[in-house]
């Protein structure tokens, strides 16, 4: 029975996964924050990423769409920021990480997806004022443990 209690264990466990399993667990991290993104393109891209049988062309197209969405929803330099919209931007970035080929993301797709998902929650916390530090990482430890134990 695997348990994960901190980022060090979390990262070691993620690094041990092959590319496909990284993508699948990364997708679960994104799904955990998906309601924060109102752009339907990301939900569709995440569905592709979550499909264990998705082929190369479907994944490539989903990545292209997710990247384009990310660029559409970042806060432009000098523009007034909206943290709720910014939460959506980080969800989109998490989806990009989940879909990026491993060779282009040596730091780890799942790790990057986890980080971006946490940033999405942080953006939401900035708006709500709620103290949520650490909650998303705890949720991710749980997601990964369940994934590994399944």
């Amino acid at each position: 029975m695997t348990t994960i209690t901190n980022d060090r264990e979390f990262r070691v466990a993620l690094d041990s996964l092959d590319a496909k399993r990284q993508r699948l667990v990364a997708t679960r991290f994104v799904e955990s924050v998906l309601p924060l993104c109102t752009d339907g393109r990301i939900a569709r891209a995440v569905r592709v990423a979550a499909d264990p049988d998705a082929d190369y062309s479907a994944l490539t197209e989903a990545l292209r769409v997710a990247k384009a969405t990310t660029l559409d929803c970042h806060t432009r330099c000098g523009a007034e920021g909206d943290w709720l919209e910014q939460a959506g931007y980080f969800v989109a970035r998490a989806a990009v990480a989940a879909l990026t080929p491993r060779c282009q993301m040596p730091g780890g797709m799942a790790w990057q997806a986890a980080m971006s998902s946490r940033m999405a929650q942080t953006s939401k916390a900035i708006v709500s004022g709620e103290e949520t530090a650490g909650q998303e990482s705890e949720a991710q430890y749980q997601i990964l443990a369940e994934f590994l134990n399944a």
Partner: peptide, 20 residues
């Protein structure tokens, strides 16, 4: 210039601290 106020940065910092 983007309207980032101190409480937003403080929240970012708290979340990063929690991770680190």
């Amino acid at each position: 210039p983007m309207g980032v106020k101190l409480p937003a940065l403080q929240t970012q910092i708290r979340h990063v601290e929690q991770d680190l």
